[in-house]
Computed example of a mutant assay.
Amino acid sequence: MKQIFIDKFVIPQNGKQEFTQRMNFNRDFIKNLPGFLGDAAYERADDNGNMICITVANWESEDALNQAKQKVQAEYQRIGFNPAELLARLNITMEREIFQPLAN
């Protein structure tokens, strides 16, 4: 069954540029992984000037998503990137959910 991986980020104004660079790196990386079906990113500003960003990645199966997660973590380790540190340093909050398409 297809898996839809959805992240919601709230990024303070001072972290927007660095966050966007990292997000684009990640989006480019996953596009080459097996089982990747496509992605999208959306943004808006809230009343406080924070960037609200939603990313959506579609995967052909739960197995493909799990393998992609492992490959992403291995790439982070290879390049010395710590996502938790980035989120904490830039005061970014994140919510993550996995969905499946609605059955007809």
Rank of each mutant, 00 (worst) to 15 (best):
Met1Val: 12
Met1Tyr: 07
Lys2Trp: 14
Gln3Tyr: 15
Gln3Gly: 05
Ile4Tyr: 07
Phe9Asn: 08
Phe9Trp: 01
Phe9Ser: 05
Val10Gly: 06
Gly15Arg: 01
Lys16Met: 13
Gln17Ser: 04
Glu18Cys: 06
Thr20Pro: 03
Gln21Cys: 00
Met23Ala: 14
Asn24Met: 00
Phe25Ile: 09
Asn26Thr: 08
Arg27Asp: 09
Arg27Tyr: 09
Ile30Gly: 06
Lys31Tyr: 00
Lys31Cys: 00
Leu37Ile: 15
Leu37Glu: 15
Gly38Ser: 06
Asp39Ile: 04
Ala41Tyr: 14
Ala41Thr: 12
Tyr42Glu: 03
Tyr42His: 10
Arg44Asp: 05
Ala45Val: 03
Asp46Val: 06
Gly49Gln: 03
Gly49Trp: 08
Met51Lys: 10
Met51Leu: 15
Ile52His: 02
Ser61His: 05
Glu62Ser: 13
Ala64Glu: 04
Ala64Val: 03
Asn66Ser: 03
Gln67Thr: 10
Lys69Ser: 08
Lys69Gly: 06
Gln70Gly: 10
Val72His: 02
Val72Tyr: 06
Gln73Glu: 14
Phe81Glu: 10
Phe81Asn: 05
Pro83Asp: 00
Pro83Leu: 05
Pro83Arg: 02
Glu85Asn: 13
Leu86Phe: 11
Ala88Gln: 14
Arg89Trp: 03
Arg96Cys: 01
Phe99Lys: 10
Phe99Glu: 09
Leu102Ser: 13
Asn104Trp: 12
Asn104Cys: 04
